[in-house]
C-alpha cells in the first residue's frame, strides 16, 4: 500500500510540474501570439495581412499535428533546447509547443470580443496601437484570457498523460505502465480519480479568478 501511495504521489508531482510550467510558458508566448493574431487581422489596429496569414498558417499546422506525434517530432528540438530528450523536464518542451498556438487562438477570440467602440474611443484620444493593446485590449479581455488559461491548463493535463512516450512520467504514464500493462486495476482507478480531482480544482480555481476579474463588469 505504502508503495502505491509513493508511486501515486511522485506521479502526481510530475504531472503538476509539467502542467504548471507548460501553462506558464504557453501564457508567456501564447498571449502575445494571440495579440498579434488579433491586431494584424483585417480592419484591426495593426492590420498586416501577410503577417496575419503566415502566423495563422503556422498556428494551424501546429494545432493539426496529433500530440503523440508532436512529442516524437520535437525530440531533436527538445535535445537542442534543454540538453536531453527524455524525462519530465524534456516533456515540458512539446507540451508548451502544443499549448502556445492553442493559447494564441483563445487569446485572439477573447480580444475579438472587446467592443470596437472602446478601441475607437482610445484611438480618438490619440492612443498609439501599443497603448490600445496594453491599456484597452488586454485589461478589457482579461477575464476571457483567464478563462482561456484555465482551458489550456486542463488540456495540458490531458496531453501530459502521453508524456510517458518520452519518459516524462506523470499520472497518465503510471496508469498505462501499472494499471494497464501490469493489470493493477486499483492504480488505474486511483490515477483517474486524482486526474478528475485535479481538473476540477483547476476549473474551480480558474472560475474564481475569472469571477474576481469580472467583478463589476
Amino acid at each position: 500500500m505504502a508503495e502505491t501511495v509513493k508511486l501515486l504521489f511522485s506521479a502526481t508531482r510530475e504531472t503538476v510540474y509539467m502542467v504548471a510550467v507548460s501553462v506558464l510558458i504557453a501564457s508567456i508566448f501564447g498571449i502575445p501570439l494571440g495579440v498579434l493574431l488579433y491586431s494584424t487581422d483585417r480592419g484591426r489596429i495593426l492590420e498586416n495581412s501577410p503577417l496575419n496569414k503566415a502566423l495563422g498558417t503556422i498556428v494551424n499546422i501546429f494545432r493539426s499535428i496529433p500530440f503523440v506525434i508532436l512529442l516524437i517530432m520535437l525530440i531533436p528540438f527538445t535535445r537542442w533546447l534543454v540538453g536531453k530528450s527524455i524525462g519530465t523536464t524534456a516533456a515540458i518542451v512539446p507540451l508548451s509547443v502544443a499549448a502556445i498556438p492553442f493559447m494564441g487562438r483563445l487569446t485572439e477570440t477573447a480580444l475579438r470580443e472587446v467592443d470596437r467602440g472602446v478601441i475607437e474611443a482610445a484611438q480618438a484620444m490619440g492612443a498609439s496601437p501599443f497603448q490600445v493593446i496594453t491599456k484597452v485590449l488586454i485589461p478589457e479581455a482579461l477575464p476571457s484570457i483567464a478563462a482561456g488559461i484555465t482551458i489550456t491548463a486542463i488540456n495540458l493535463v490531458g496531453y501530459s498523460a502521453m508524456a510517458g512516450v518520452i519518459g516524462g512520467g506523470g499520472l497518465g504514464d503510471l496508469a498505462v505502465r501499472y494499471g494497464y500493462q501490469r493489470f493493477m486495476l486499483d492504480i488505474m482507478l486511483y490515477t483517474v480519480a486524482i486526474l478528475v480531482v485535479m481538473v476540477q480544482l483547476i476549473q474551480v480555481l480558474g472560475d474564481l479568478v475569472v469571477k474576481y476579474l469580472s467583478k463589476h463588469r
Binding site: V118, E120, A121, A124, E140, L142
Partner: peptide, 12 residues
C-alpha cells in the same frame, strides 16, 4: 469625442 454607447472601459 463622446459616443452614443459611451464606450467606457469596463475594467476601470
Amino acid at each position: 469625442m463622446i459616443f452614443q454607447h459611451f464606450n467606457l472601459l469596463s475594467s476601470r
